[in-house]
Each structure stands twice: as C-alpha cells, then as structure tokens.
Write a protein that binds this DNA or RNA. Structure first.
Lengths: 224, 224
DNA sequence: TCAGCCCATGAAAATCCTCATCATAGAAGA
DNA sequence: TCTTCTATGATGAGGATTTTCATGGGCTGA
C-alpha cells in the first residue's frame, strides 16, 4: 500500500510518514506543488494525503490534475483550519475525505484505512473497457464474459496500465511498480518485457488485442 | 531539495547538475577539497555527492569533517573505481551509499531519492547484530564476515523483523509486507511459514541462530 | 489428557526472472 | 530516398524463486 504525503511542514510530514510506515504502508513525500504534480503524474498511490496550503500552487489544483489524468487514487485533504469552504470545495473536486489539523495519527490511520477499503470494495472497483472487465477486489479478469486467468504480476501490470490509460509509462516505472522496490529502478528491467509479452499473449488469446502499445525507447501505453 | 556535488571533473559535475536541476533539485558544486570543506561548514544539504579522488585532500576527510560537525547530510560516494576498500571505508565513515563510475544519471537519481527518503524515515543503511551484518543498499548479508545468499523475500523478511526487533509481528503483517498487497491480509498466509523456515535455515547454517522466535498464535519476533 | 488450532516441514506446482538470440524501429549518413 | 548501423524490444527456454499443499508435530486451554 503506497501513500503520498503532500505536505510542506517537514516535521509533520515526517511524523506522519513514521507512523504510517509502522502501520506497514509505503510512504512517499512531496513538499511543494511542483513536486506533488510530478509524482502523481508518474506514480499511482492507494491514498494521497493533501495539504491545501502548498508553496508553489493551490492544493485544489492537485485534485484537478488527478481528475484530468483519470487517476483513481484516494485523496484525504488535511487542511490547516477547519474551513467549511475548503471542505466543500475539496470534496467537490474529488477528495474522498477531509481532516482538520491538528489531528491524531490514529485517526488519520483509520481514515486512510477506510478510504482504501471503500475504494477496494466499493462499486467503482470494476473496470470495464469494451469487452474487457476487471474486478479488482476479486482479482478476476473477463473478456467477453469469459474468464482469463492472469498471474499476480500480470494482473498488477494490467491494472496499472489501464489506470494510466493513454499515457506512456516508462519501463523503469513499471519495474518499480511490479517489484515494489525503488532499488529495482537501477538494475535491469528485462522482466518487464516478459510480463508485457505474457499479458499481451493471454489477452489476445482471449480476443482482446491492440490495447497495449509499445512506445519505442519510452515505455508502454494502454491505448483506448 | 539541495544537493552538493563535490567533483573535480568539470564536465561530469556539470552534466550531473543539469540532470538534477531537471529533476527539481537545487545544485551547488565544489571542485576542490578546500571548496568542499568551506561549503559544508556553512551550509546543509539534503544530499552530498562526493568524489573520493579530490585535488587538495582525501575525500574521506570530507566525511570526517561532516561527522565532526555533526551534520546530518546524506552522502553518496561516487568513486572512480569499484574498489571494495573504498566502499567499506566510505560506509564506515558515514556515507549512505556508493556508486561506481561510470554510472547512468537515472541510477544516480534513484540513489539520491532513496538516500533522502531513508534520511527522512530515520533508517540507516547497515544493520549490525553481533555476528550478523546487513548492507541494505547492496542487499548483502554476512555472518561472521562470510556472505550468506538470501532471496529477495528472505532479505525483506530479515530486514523487517530486525527493524521491529523485540516486537512481535503478526503473520498477517508479515504477509502484507512481503506481498506488498493489502488484499493479502485476508487470504491464507502459508507462504510466511515457508519463508520463515528458509530464512531460519540459511541463518542457522551460517551459524546465526536463536534470533527469530515464534510467538505462538501471535506471530514472530526478532529477539536480541 | 485431549481436542483443536497453530506451526514446521518437504515436495510439488506455479510463477517469476534471467539469459541468449533474434527482430525491428529509429537515427545517421550516403 | 535508401542503406546501414545501433539501441531497444520480442521471444523462448531454463533456472531460480515463490507459493501451495499435504502431512505431521507441538502448544494451549478446557
């Protein structure tokens, strides 16, 4: 489970990160608007903690960017004051929850858990792309109502590509997502080729072709 | 994020700076030993890139100076040769990571990211437990200075257990950590048994026993 | 003591990663 | 424009790792 903490007060961000790491989440941090935007452009998170008061730009624009990218990341706004306008604006722009500072870390933990759970078990967890249907909580894939059995990595790859549809994802980013390890950004990424190939093969055998495009020298893309 | 590049080859320093600036870091450069010392005396950096072969003084002395000043700056050594002695000396003197020339800029970027992140989370890079030594960036484990080869999951498990030493970790938490997937909190966790068993076996074959305790009905614990 | 759950273990199956080889896109130059 | 060259991607096979499964032993509470 990956969390992005968008927060410019370093001490707060760090104590949140420490707490969440203890709770077995993987955390990343962004301290500025630009940093936040570049991270959400590249990666996907299970939950994003968003401070609305950011140096370099309005936090609400981060929400708009998420929406524009059609990202499914859960978002919890953490705002300096319990401003009703902020709350309404935030929830309206696509946030999943709202938490006013100061808050207890355990409360934050509970909210995160609930956002992720809602995302996982809610109705929005079935992706449908023409003849392709993906039930994320159940980890099942159907093509024209016939089941296709994918391995865990293949399934992850598929969901990740679709979650970033029409955008090229670099091989390194795919490698990192699949291995869950930043260190693997460094080594060789041959295994990505293998998973792409196997996924393409299984999908096309089921009659679902031409979605995964190779962007030579850049990565792969789900095109729709 | 501020980076100090201590490197006398001007072209290399410049191309690193250009790359890192693109990645939204602020860069400063030092081309000589004296220049480096005066900069670290005055300023603090999120990460320092240190070439050990410097005109005017040994790069390791820069590390000693940092230590003397009790600075917390992260340090990545970029060494002309892939010399084991350099690595060991560097890491012992307080560097956070090392990188042998020539390297890809993206690799450097990943290491910087990881060093900064680790600093934020307060983790260190080499764990030592009596006869057991773990080099996290290199993913190497030694028992009484003899290498032990662990698989990725075994390594992850070991680091996670030690990172929570003297605390019982539930099987579900271990399962989630190893699989990187919250959904696996629900299913069966038999594979944890297998990894625990294999890790115990490899460690004890190397002469490192009795650290991993089973807490019946509750989980496992690294006891020290 | 005994029942019932929990863990340990070995082996087999499934999955994943690596490696060597081949194919192809894009770049560079004629 | 055509050819050649180089880096990148595709592919299949093999080995390594991970996960599952079945069986047996041990802990704990009644």
């Amino acid at each position: 489970m990956k969390i992005l903490i968008i927060e410019d007060e370093r001490e707060l961000a760090q104590s949140i990160a420490t707490y969440l790491t203890d709770e077995n989440y993987r955390c990343e941090m962004a301290a500025t608007y630009d940093d936040a935007i570049s991270k959400i452009d590249i990666y996907s998170y299970d939950c994003i903690l968003l401070d609305l008061m950011l140096p370099g730009g309005d936090g609400l624009k981060v929400l708009e960017e998420l929406k524009r990218l059609q990202k499914q990341d859960g978002v919890i706004i953490i705002s300096a004051k319990d401003s009703l306008e902020d709350k309404i604006a935030g929830l309206h722009t696509g946030a999943d929850d709202y938490l006013a500072k100061p808050f207890h870390l355990s409360e934050l933990g509970a909210r995160i858990y609930s956002v992720i759970r809602r995302k996982q078990f809610g109705n929005s967890n079935i992706l449908q792309v023409n003849e392709l249907k993906i039930d994320i909580p159940a980890k099942k894939v159907m093509v024209s109502d016939k089941p296709v059995t994918l391995t865990k990595k293949e399934f992850d790859l598929l969901v990740f590509l679709i979650g970033n549809k029409n955008r090229v994802i670099s091989k390194a980013a795919l490698a990192e997502h699949l291995s869950g390890d930043m260190a693997d950004m460094l080594d060789n990424h041959d295994f990505v080729y293998a998973h792409i190939k196997n996924l393409k093969k299984k999908l096309s055998e089921a009659g679902c072709t031409d979605y995964i495009k190779t962007a030579y020298g850049m990565g792969y893309k789900w095109e729709q």
